[in-house]
Design a binder for these strands. Structure first.
Lengths: 247, 247
DNA sequence: AATGGAGATTAACATAGGTAAGGTCGTTGC
DNA sequence: GCAACGACCTTACCTATGTTAATCTCCATT
């Protein structure tokens, strides 16, 4: 019933019923569950599968020798980890569950099989992987140029819009399972400063964040604070833009 | 005579003579030159070609509305910009020359032609693009977790090792055309602090940087300061490691 | 030789954000 | 029931880094 990948890919292109059936079939082949905080794959291992997150939140992260940890990316429902990972000999980072997650493991043969005869899927998956790269670039800008408030606002905008594309929002709210520690590891700031920054956003009525639920009463206003330009998410299928209402 | 791309790809796999001839032929088809500081492609344009930097340095960058600029990646001789860029409708960032550069433009058809019948090339190009993604991730870690000194040291290590892979170093030196302003835009720090940081590295005899030439007398020592782990560059073809001597 | 500009350097001062410590609250386990 | 814990929040203090602005050094022009 929840098909976040399909929902997301259809932001980019139209899929036939056969395409959708194929995606659902592949995703059903090998399903694994992980507990919150459990590693899905660890640095140094040889990757054997493409992982599709079908439920829950996960993250890519790296740890320095002295223990500092940086979260490099979030995987939300419908996100794929590393389409072409088969080329590499070993993982240079880890992927860990944030909440309990359900993951579909896609083998190389299943993946190749899917690409053959489904050009729409193929193209849509390339799009998804290019968007992932664009997000990584935007994070570089975020960490390099924006101050704490802008940075936090930018992250919240991005996550909200991505969740919306996957069908995981209702009105102006979404589940938001990240702890302040995880936010700090993402944005390169201390938990104390994460807290200060969230307080400031709350005081300006830009966000409501309580009981693992995030509400953004006025997305446009938050985007303005963040200097957020959604173009890097490439969600506009026909020159349609994100500030126009969706669906 | 200088074939940085081939040299680099051979770090990953062996190429046949036919493979090399093909690469050289493709690269010779459309050659363009750009002056230093000139844009190769600008945000908002529709990308028509894969760009191969054959001489000089270029960078990917993004500018915020208020003018702050972040350099997101460097392109060194032998680097390719965005293999699969044909999928996207418009650039979400710009690519600019740092020095005068020579660029080979590779059209979609030329690219497809090259992939057919040259599986080694195909695989090597995927490898190159996955390494580019890994570098982007490492930059996220760099900006998020390392302090100014570590950050600078890390960048210098990375650039030196990449230049080495492209055959652009001699002994422990390489050309280094970046201004302190550009270093600041890369590392998210003010030019004043870039200057302080470079002084500190010089004072510790970790680098010699003068007249656009960088010398790293003791790479291992600089790597230690940077908490630099070269695994993300995936340069070890047979489990060989970078600290072992190359070639 | 004088002029001008880009880049590098330095100093004096200001501040965003880090560190350390501790407190509250709710949940889990015994 | 209470101990232990994890998330969160807060305060006080400290430091890495930013800001501003002045100076210096090369080069390239004229």
């Amino acid at each position: 019933m929840r098909r976040p990948l399909i929902r997301k890919l259809e932001k980019f292109t139209r899929l036939s019923q056969a395409d959708k059936d194929m995606l659902l079939r592949i995703a059903a082949q090998r399903v694994r569950r992980f507990a919150a905080r459990e590693d899905i794959i660890h640095e140094g291992e040889k990757p054997e599968f493409i992982n599709l997150i079908s439920e829950g939140w996960a993250c890519r992260y790296k740890t320095l020798q002295d223990g500092r940890r940086q979260i490099i990316a979030f995987f939300l429902p419908g996100d794929l980890c590393d389409l072409n990972v088969f080329v590499l000999k070993e993982m240079d980072h880890s992927i860990g569950a944030i909440t309990p997650v359900v993951v579909s493991e896609i083998s190389r043969t299943a993946f190749d099989e899917m690409m053959i005869g489904h050009p729409r899927i193929t193209q849509a998956l390339w799009w998804e992987s290019l968007v992932a790269a664009a997000i990584q670039r935007e994070w570089t800008v975020n960490l390099g140029q924006r101050d704490a408030l802008e940075r936090m606002a930018h992250l919240l905008c991005e996550l909200f819009i991505r969740l919306e594309a996957a069908g995981c929002t209702s009105n102006s709210s979404c589940e938001f399972p990240l702890t302040q520690t995880e936010l700090g590891e993402t944005l390169g700031m201390s938990t104390v400063h994460v807290n200060r920054t969230l307080q400031e956003l709350r005081a300006s009525n830009l966000i409501v964040l309580k009981d693992r639920t995030l509400t953004i009463p006025n997305l446009k206003a938050l985007q303005d604070v963040a200097l957020f330009n959604p173009n890097y998410l490439h969600l506009d299928r026909e020159g349609r833009h994100l500030d126009a209402n969706e669906e």
